[in-house]
Simulated assay, not measured.
Amino acid sequence: MALGDARRASGKAMETARRAIGTSNEAERRGIGAAMEASRRGTTVDDINAVVAPPRANKSLPEVQARGGVPAASGTGEFKPRPASNTGGGIASPLTEKTRSVDGKTVPDREYYASGLTSSDGLFILPAIKTMNMTDANGATVQFQYADPNGTVATEEPT
Rank of each mutant, 00 (worst) to 15 (best):
I21E: 09
G33V: 02
T43K: 08
L3V: 13
M36H: 12
A6S: 07
I21W: 05
D5Q: 12
K12N: 10
T76V: 07
R19Y: 00
S93E: 01
A34F: 09
P54D: 07
G75F: 13
L95T: 03
I48T: 04
A17N: 12
S101E: 10
A73V: 06
R41W: 02
M1N: 03
E63I: 12
N25V: 03
G22W: 02
G4W: 13
A84W: 04
A9C: 01
E37W: 01
R56V: 05
G88F: 06
T23L: 12
I91Q: 06
D5K: 14
T76K: 12
P83Y: 05
A66H: 01
E28G: 02
S39L: 11
E28D: 08
A13H: 03
R82F: 08
R8W: 05
I91C: 04
R8T: 13
S93K: 01
I91R: 07
T99G: 10
R56F: 04
A50Y: 12
V64F: 04
D47M: 14
I91W: 04
A17S: 12
E26M: 12
D5C: 04
N49Y: 06
M36S: 10
R67I: 05
M1T: 07
E97N: 00
G69S: 15
S85N: 15
P83H: 01
A72T: 13
A53M: 11
A2S: 15
V51A: 08
V45E: 13
P81L: 02
A35W: 02
A38V: 00
G88M: 01
S85I: 04
G69Y: 04
E97G: 09
T96Q: 08
G22H: 07
R19H: 11
